[in-house]
Design a protein around this nucleic acid. Structure first.
Lengths: 159, 159
DNA sequence: TGTGATCCTTACGTTCACGTCAAGTTTCAG
DNA sequence: CTGAAACTTGACGTGAACGTAAGGATCACA
């Protein structure tokens, strides 16, 4: 009874998109179709699904992935969801539990690898930009020194 | 005479794209059209232009910008290019030099802001992922402890 | 001076990621 | 039990970012 009936419009508002987009993601198999929804009835979502959608769009945006790439990366997530479900049941054979966890770990590692690569590229870019910035500021100071305080020093942001 | 005649195909290969894309970028005003090229003649590029194109595609990719957004962000770059040109001439009035440098600084700062925002978002994502990873590994170790060395510990990457 | 590779312009085609409209159905507040 | 609001499927439309094909011109080199 706690947060079980979000409609597609609510979900869209919550994650900052449109119903059409959500339906489209379902259409291409990026989001699972709620299994027992008789055709024609309204889609209903849980808070967990909203969270998943948020995560998904975040990955898409930050990693610059196409929906197709995202899909392959998230066959991973599907498995992790299954893991979480299994793990909530206490009565699962430890060996099986371990397998599921190992699998999940592999998926997390794949995502981490992508994220770290991107993060490094961005940091490199940031570094280069702030080096360029330093050079520009140095030249400005040189001019100011030579001209003897005739112009106002207007600094803007710290490197 | 040093590196003044790269043709569009060479440039495309150098930056990992196609001639069509380069022409398209020129068409929408993202790349400047070589001013004195009689229609019909081959486009010729310098190494500097190759570098600029690389930088441009890097920004597009890493920041996830549309070509239109990139264009506005790069009205900046155009100015910086003018700055560099002016700065190579020694005979420019220091006041004017200063103005140009201040302007360039502003543009750099705008790019830096975007880059830093993205970098932070990515770092946050990285952090969250590695936390999730830690939890998974902890659970695996718990199982292993309880089961007494019956399964092989297969670690993959360090957090 | 040919000649093959590359390039030119023009124009239409394509893919992705949705937007938009229509006609009907479901849901929920009153 | 209404009725308006939100939803359903289906279909066609759209903008961005190129791809592709045609018909001809230009270039580097022998």
């Amino acid at each position: 009874m706690s947060g079980e009936s979000l409609r597609i419009g609510d979900v869209a508002k919550a994650v900052g998109t449109t119903p059409r987009t959500i339906r489209y993601y379902e259409e291409i198999g990026l989001l699972p179709e709620a299994p027992a929804r008789p055709s024609g009835r309204h889609r209903l979502y849980t808070e967990a699904e909203v969270e998943r959608l948020r995560e998904l769009m975040r990955l898409k945006d930050l990693l610059g992935l196409s929906l197709e790439e995202l899909k392959t990366l998230l066959s991973a997530e599907e498995a992790r969801a299954e893991v979480r479900a299994q793990l909530r049941r206490e009565d699962v054979d430890p060996q099986r539990r371990r397998e599921l966890l190992e699998e999940a770990l592999g998926h997390i590692d794949r995502q981490l690898a992508l994220v770290r690569k991107r993060a490094q590229e961005l940091e490199k870019l940031e570094h280069e930009l702030s080096e360029t910035r330093k050079r520009a500021r140095r030249k400005i100071r040189e001019i100011d020194a030579r001209a003897g305080g005739s112009f106002p020093p207007a600094l803007e942001a710290q490197p």
